[in-house]
């Protein structure tokens, strides 16, 4: 896999997100309060709201447009809403965030390096 060195973990605010300009559209990278990171297409499955602009809590982001709740670890909308934002593999190493650009094909390719929060 081609891991791209994106930014420092601290470049992303806790309980916040940054936007990466992916070749096929924006990618939102989120950071939780426990310093896990997740990457999803920055398009809400509802009406394409920019998820990166939402409020992050737990492992969820609330879309800023109509408040759909999206699970960060799967990209799935939380019931009763249905839909999915594509997710990308990310990891943290030595305080840097790495991302693989191709979309992950199955659900659980998220990799967390838990000890490396800078």
């Amino acid at each position: 896999m081609n891991w791209l060195n994106i930014c420092a973990l601290t470049d992303i605010p806790q309980l916040g997100a940054r936007i990466v300009e992916g070749p096929k559209g924006d990618i939102a990278i989120f950071r939780t309060s426990s310093d896990e990171v997740f990457a999803l297409d920055d398009r809400c499955p509802h009406k394409h709201g920019p998820l990166s602009q939402g409020i992050v809590f737990g492992k969820t982001v609330a879309c800023p447009l109509h408040n759909w709740q999206i699970a960060l670890d799967s990209g799935e909308a939380i019931a009763p809403d249905v839909g999915c934002a594509h997710k990308y593999p990310v990891k943290i190493e030595e305080g840097r965030v790495f991302l693989v650009l191709q979309k992950s094909t199955h659900r659980d390719t998220r990799i967390i390096a838990s000890t490396t929060a800078a």
Partner: peptide, 12 residues
């Protein structure tokens, strides 16, 4: 300003 800056992928 960070809030408004995007991370370009070309530079990576």
């Amino acid at each position: 300003k960070k809030e408004f800056e995007r991370i370009p992928v070309a530079a990576l």
